[in-house]
Amino acid sequence: MNKIKLLIVCLMVTAVASAQEFMATVTVDYQQVQGSNNQVFQTLEKSLRDFINTTKWTEGRYKIHEKIEANFLVIVTGRSGSTYQARLQVQSRRPVYNSTYYTPVLNFVDANFDFEYTEFEELIFNPRKFSGKNLTDVIAYYVYFALGMDSDTFQKEGGTPYFNIARQITTNANGSRYTGWGEIDGNKSRATLINNVMKSDNSTLRNLYYQYHRVGLDGMSDNETKAKNTIGNALLTLSFYQKGNYALFYPLDIFFMAKKDEISKIFSGGMMSSVDIAGVKEVLTALSPTNSQLWNNLKK
Rank of each mutant, 00 (worst) to 15 (best):
N2W: 06
N2G: 05
N2F: 11
L6C: 08
I8N: 04
L11W: 01
V13E: 01
A15L: 14
S18F: 12
A19P: 02
Q20Y: 12
E21L: 00
A24P: 04
T25W: 05
V26C: 08
Q31Y: 12
Q31I: 13
G35R: 04
N38H: 10
Q39R: 12
Q42N: 14
L48Y: 00
D50C: 06
F51K: 04
I52C: 09
T58S: 11
G60D: 15
A70M: 09
L73N: 10
V74W: 01
V74H: 01
I75L: 11
V76R: 05
G78K: 10
R79L: 09
S82Y: 09
Q85L: 13
Q85F: 11
L88E: 03
Q91M: 10
Y97F: 15
T100S: 15
T100C: 08
Y101G: 13
Y102N: 15
T103V: 12
T103K: 01
P104G: 02
P104L: 00
N107D: 12
A111E: 14
A111M: 12
E119N: 13
E122S: 14
I124D: 09
F125L: 07
P127M: 08
R128G: 02
F130N: 12
L147S: 00
D150E: 13
D150P: 10
F154Q: 04
G158H: 03
N164F: 06
I165M: 11
N172G: 09
A173Q: 09
G175K: 12
E183N: 15
G186H: 11
G186D: 10
N187Q: 13
K188W: 13
S189M: 08
L193C: 06
N195K: 15
S203Q: 14
L208H: 11
H213S: 11
R214E: 12
G216E: 02
L217V: 05
L217Q: 08
S221I: 12
E224W: 03
T225R: 14
K226S: 15
A234M: 07
L238V: 14
L238Q: 09
K243T: 15
L252P: 13
F255V: 01
S264F: 02
S264N: 09
I266M: 05
M272H: 08
S274H: 10
D276E: 13
V280E: 09
K281A: 02
V283D: 11
L287R: 05
N291A: 14
N291M: 00
S292W: 02
N296L: 03
L298K: 02
